[in-house]
Every structure is written in C-alpha cells, then in structure tokens.
C-alpha cells in the first residue's frame, strides 16, 4: 500500500486482511448469484457455462477461506475468537480518519 496513505490511515497491518475479506465476501455472493442463475437458465450452452462458473467460484471461495484461516483472520471453529477479531476490526474501521 502507498506509504503516505498507510501512514495517514494506520492501515498498514490491516490492508491485506481487508482485501482478503473483500475477496471472500465477493466469492460468497458470487456463489449465491451463480446458484440463482443456474436454476434460471435452460439453454444447455448457458447452463453448462454457469455450472462451470459456479464451480470456479467455489474453488476461489475454498482457496481464499483456507488462506484466511491459515493467516488467523478467520476462525471457523472458534466463534468466540472470531467475535473478538470482529470487534477489533470494527474498532479499527470506526477509528479510521475520514480523508
């Protein structure tokens, strides 16, 4: 991240986590969107394409959530720990200066 922006926002340590979380949320809503679309499509060509895209979205979701678990940014098996992390992130976001 740009050093000046980092210094201004204090987001130097958080930026990768924010980006990864954004990617995870995109992957999630992608899967939901694809599941909707697959069940709306009938033309074999489109159905086949959307099913393939759905599988790709599942792969991305799997990859990014495994990455976040490994980094300790996502505690799937420990709800308390996840809540602690959430509260931390909320505070960081609330305390960001408005530029």
């Amino acid at each position: 991240m740009n050093l000046i922006i980092e210094a201004l926002t204090g987001m130097d340590a958080l930026s990768d986590q924010v980006v990864a979380m954004d990617l995870l949320i995109s992957a999630k809503s992608g899967i939901r969107n694809y599941a909707m679309a697959v069940t709306e499509s009938g033309t074999p060509e489109i159905k086949e394409m959307l099913t393939r895209h759905l599988e790709e979205a599942l792969d991305l979701h799997e990859q990014i959530s495994a990455y976040m678990v490994e980094k300790g940014w996502y505690h799937a098996w420990d709800t308390n720990e996840q809540i602690r992390l959430d509260l931390n992130n909320i505070n960081t976001a609330l305390n960001l200066p408005i530029l």
Binding site: D16, S26, S29, A37, E40, L50, H53
Partner: peptide
C-alpha cells in the same frame, strides 16, 4: 430470463474484476 441473469452476473463480475485489479496493487503478501 436467462439473458437477464447473465446481465446481472456480468454487472457483478465487472465490479469484482475492477476491484481485484485495483486492489491487487495494495496487497503486500
């Protein structure tokens, strides 16, 4: 209805691609 679905997905994916392309520059890992 399938054309409309594809339209929705295209809008969503365009947004995702734009974000991934710009945000990749902000990532250090």
């Amino acid at each position: 209805h399938e054309v409309l679905e594809v339209h929705e997905l295209a809008a969503f994916k365009t947004n995702c691609l734009t974000k991934s392309k710009t945000m990749k520059a902000l990532v250090s890992d």
